[in-house]
Amino acid sequence: MTTTTRATIGLLARKELHDALRNRWFVLYTVIFAVLSLALSWIGLAGGQLYGLAGFGRTTASLINLIMLIVPLMGLTLGALSLAMEREQGTLLYVLAQPVVPAEVLLGKLLGLATALTTALSIGFGLSGLLLAWRGSTMGLGAYLGLFGLTILLALLSLSLGLLFSSALPRTATALGSALFAWLLLVFLGDLGLLGSALVLRIPVEQLFTLSLLNPLQVFKIAAILLLRSDLQVLGPAGQYAMHTYGMRLLPLSVGVLLLWSLLPLLPAYLFFRRRGAL
């Protein structure tokens, strides 16, 4: 990578970050995530603090749920909006008229948006971390930072998916619509569909576990639980099967799968973007 390329990407990333931070959606997501994670940590601690008991209860579960609900939505919508909106406004035409190549534009967008998402997440995590530390929680530093890293990975993979929609689809509305549908699919329909099929077809535990891994959100969930508990007992027979078969290798494995999910959509995104350009 030449110096000019790097400088170009850096400049584009800064511009993207600048734009994202002024995006009302982004600000709204940031505030919602911060407030909800703070509230959930507070509620979760209220029990532990009062009774000297603490554990991996429904509240911890809702914290993971919150991440699984909001973070993909942030990444997908921001990613879907980025290229498509600029394309509609005509600014993309202006950018591409400069001496830059499509790869630089795409990478710049990715970097800028990833930084923006990290910013939003670190504010939410930072606030809840302070609260957890102040009120005294059972969560260790390693688990806390690990969960933060996993969440960034989740943001990254939904961002690249969003970018794929943004580069492939001509209009903002369609890109955003597809991104929202993808979110629904990942968060709700995928699991419900699998649950329904398993109910009807009586899928055995091993296959159920393998099939569930097709959904990156399930991979995230498994990694998060492993990180917080070093065990998958809470997931019942399927969790026991997974621990028995893979053991703690499951953690690096799932991180690898999440990385793959964040990198793979970039290739078709690049191909689409090169073909379509500013049109």
Binding site: R14, L17, H18, L21, R22, G48, Q49, G52, L53, A54, T115, T118, T119, A120, L121, S122, I123, F125, G126, L127, S128, G129, L130, L131, L132, A133, W134, R135, G136, S137, T138, M139, G140, L141, Y144, L145, F148
Partner: peptide, 28 residues
């Protein structure tokens, strides 16, 4: 079960928060 204060966790939280706010403020 008394949970003591957690200075490392507090520091990490503070660092993350400041990092986020700094990036946000700088860009704004």
């Amino acid at each position: 079960v008394h949970q003591p204060m957690r200075p490392p966790l507090a520091l990490a939280g503070l660092a993350l928060l400041l990092m986020g706010l700094w990036t946000m403020g700088r860009s704004h």
